[in-house]
Amino acid sequence: MLYLTCPNCGRRTVEEFRYGEIPTIPESITDPDARDLDRGFMRTNPFGPSVERWFHDYGCRRWFTVTRDTTTDEVL
């Protein structure tokens, strides 16, 4: 069971939340045009720590940001 802690409502099971992807643009891409393209169409699938937005659907209905290790589901 993955638990997330909503800063407003507290610790809840992941069922209460909705995942909001944050397209993370690699810093190596410096051309603004290419960055736009990457942001729009490329999706990273990070192995390890990932900065993510989560929406507390069943609670306060607000967004928050966490860093989650995708290999262990641990919230860092």
Partner: peptide
Amino acid sequence: ASFAEMWVRDWAE
């Protein structure tokens, strides 16, 4: 509707 609320809040932030 539900997604729209998430969407508007996300971009406002």
